[in-house]
């Protein structure tokens, strides 16, 4: 009986230890270093050179859903509008893939929406002064 009590206590400690270890591991970090994520980052990094002036001009803004949007095409010369739409489409495709890949790299595809929302908030919070962001459905200049 004494041995059983000891065993039970040991098992309980073991189980608690495992739970804590997994909880800490899961809380500590999000895996963002898969090859797919690196490729998406590189692609977005390259595109940012073209997007930055469009953010600054106000033609493109940061939407609440973690994407970017062609906010006011009339700010651009007619010749540039097509190119700007293509940039927006390509960037949004990369962003969607990025959110999906992060969720998948962490074995939680269902986190995609949470990851998208987190990113949406961070893109908007960190947008530079003069860039346009969407807040509560309205466009605001930072």
């Amino acid at each position: 009986m004494k041995a059983l009590t000891k065993l039970t206590r040991w098992l309980a400690a073991m189980a608690l230890g495992c739970m804590l270890a997994f909880a800490v591991h899961a809380q500590g970090n999000l895996e963002v270093d898969s090859p797919a994520i690196s490729a998406l980052k590189a692609s977005m990094q390259k595109r940012h050179a073209q997007l930055a002036p469009l953010y600054a001009s106000g033609a493109i803004g940061f939407a609440t859903d973690g994407s970017i949007a062609l906010r006011d095409a009339s700010l651009l010369p007619l010749a540039q509008r097509g190119g700007a739409s293509a940039l927006v489409a390509a960037e949004n495709a990369d962003r969607s893939a990025l959110y999906r890949e992060i969720a998948r790299a962490n074995q939680h595809p269902e986190w995609e929406v949470d990851i998208r929302n987190t990113f949406a908030q961070r893109w908007i919070d960190r947008a530079q002064a003069g860039w346009w962001v969407q807040r509560g459905g309205a466009w605001v200049k930072k």
């Binding site: 189980a15 495992c18 739970m19 997994f22 909880a23 899961a26 809380q27 500590g28 970090n29 999000l30 963002v32 994520i37 980052k41 977005m44 990094q45 390259k46 940012h48 050179a49 990025l98 992060i102 074995q107 939680h108 986190w111 949470d114 990851i115 987190t118 990113f119 908030q121 961070r122 893109w123 960190r126």
Partner: peptide, 30 residues
């Protein structure tokens, strides 16, 4: 225990925010 914890773990919001900041840093760095 590990299976339960792995399946039912809630979304790690703080870690996600940290990861987002890191990626935004890298994308905008250029």
């Amino acid at each position: 225990a590990s299976a339960c914890v792995t399946i039912n773990i809630y979304f790690p919001a703080a870690a996600a925010e940290k990861a987002a900041d890191r990626i935004i840093d890298e994308v905008w760095q250029l």
